[in-house]
């Protein structure tokens, strides 16, 4: 596979950054240092980084409550992400959103939604805009295996196909929706078969292999534009994290977790590093940089000022009489 050295470095550094970041989040969640719900994405790194490595910086994406990896891979400022999770005024959403809604519009993120399957219709709209305005940005919506059951996904898929909209529906099949295993509720043999109902091209890939994710995404983006059509991609991986921090995860059998660890996306990437002529020193350097970035981001966030209570009254509307908000 032909990937230039800068991009390779970027890929490895992002993989490490997401893993270190989420491990750090898990730790402070245990110590109860941050408020609110935290959904970490240990096991999703290759999908986040692999898809984003095939995108341009300003391409559109949508994410979910499990968004830290997407935001990091979409080049959102690590310090601002962390500050948001800490609820501070310098956070990416000024403390209004929190962990579930990390999103930077300037980086092409159209939102991280707490409502399952809220993203696909929104990204459909962005892709429609690109089509109407003859723009060139790509549009990608991320959602989970659980979201596949929700009407919003189906309605967006149907419209995208009907309107010949080039966009990618990227489904992360991590084996679970909350405490429900994917296969208990699956109606089709493979999850991606669902897209057949809309006569949509679909692909399946190993979501633990960042290079496979990159390759499938890159090709799908080209095909989708050439053929003027939406494409559905299922990436299979494993949700090592619980549904949220604090989830007992007792429903995930130990044997299953241990089996999945053999395909940990970071482990796979490290094994492949040799193919891309990385020395162990280079890899360790990238790891160090990633760890350093994460440490700095957390140090930064902890010292940031809290928003003022009244700041909550801003940004409800573009234009509205202020005195009528309170």
């Amino acid at each position: 596979m032909n990937i230039d050295q800068n991009k390779l470095n970027w890929i490895y550094k992002k993989l490490f950054t997401i893993r270190f970041f989420e491990e750090r989040i898990k730790k402070i969640a245990k110590e109860k240092l941050v408020p609110g719900y935290l959904h970490t994405c240990i096991g999703s790194e290759a999908i986040c980084v692999g898809v984003m490595s095939a995108l341009n910086n300003d391409d559109w994406i949508s994410s979910t409550y499990r968004n830290h990896g997407h935001a990091i891979a979409k080049n959102c400022e690590l310090k601002e992400i962390t500050s948001e999770i800490f609820g501070r005024s310098t956070g990416i959403c000024k403390g209004k959103g929190g962990s579930m809604h990390i999103s930077d519009f300037d980086k092409g993120m159209l939102g991280s939604f707490g409502i399952v399957a809220a993203g696909p219709p929104v990204v459909l709209g962005a892709a429609l805009q690109e089509k109407i305005n003859k723009g060139s940005k790509n549009s990608v919506t991320f959602f989970g295996d659980g979201a596949i059951h929700n009407g919003a996904f189906h309605e967006a898929a149907g419209l995208a196909k009907l309107w010949d909209i080039p966009m990618l529906f990227v489904c992360e099949n991590n084996g679970y929706a909350e405490a429900t295993a994917t296969d208990w509720h699956l109606n089709t043999k493979n999850l991606s078969d669902i897209s057949r109902a809309y006569d949509m091209i679909s692909y399946r890939g190993d979501g633990n292999n960042v290079f496979e994710v990159h390759e499938i995404t890159k090709n799908a983006l080209i095909e989708s534009k050439e053929k003027n059509t939406p494409i559905f991609i299922e990436f299979k991986n494993y949700r090592f994290s619980g549904q949220y921090e604090g989830d007992t995860q007792l429903y995930q059998p130990l044997e299953e977790i241990n089996e999945a660890k053999k395909n940990d996306p970071i482990k796979i990437a490290l094994e492949k590093a040799i193919d891309y002529k990385f020395s162990s020193i280079e890899i360790n350097n990238l790891k160090k940089q990633a760890l350093n970035d994460v440490e700095e981001a957390f140090k930064f966030a902890e010292t940031q000022p809290w928003p003022k209570p009244e700041d909550s009254l801003n940004d409800v509307y573009v234009n509205y009489p202020k005195n009528l908000i309170l």
């Binding site: 408020p35 956070g91 959403c93 809290w306 928003p307 003022k308 009244e310 009528l324 309170l326």
Partner: peptide
């Protein structure tokens, strides 16, 4: 509460 969505950050949510 004020005429706003529920904010996340503790000082703002407590104010809400």
């Amino acid at each position: 509460a004020p005429h706003t969505p529920v904010p996340f950050s503790p000082p703002m949510e407590d104010f809400y």
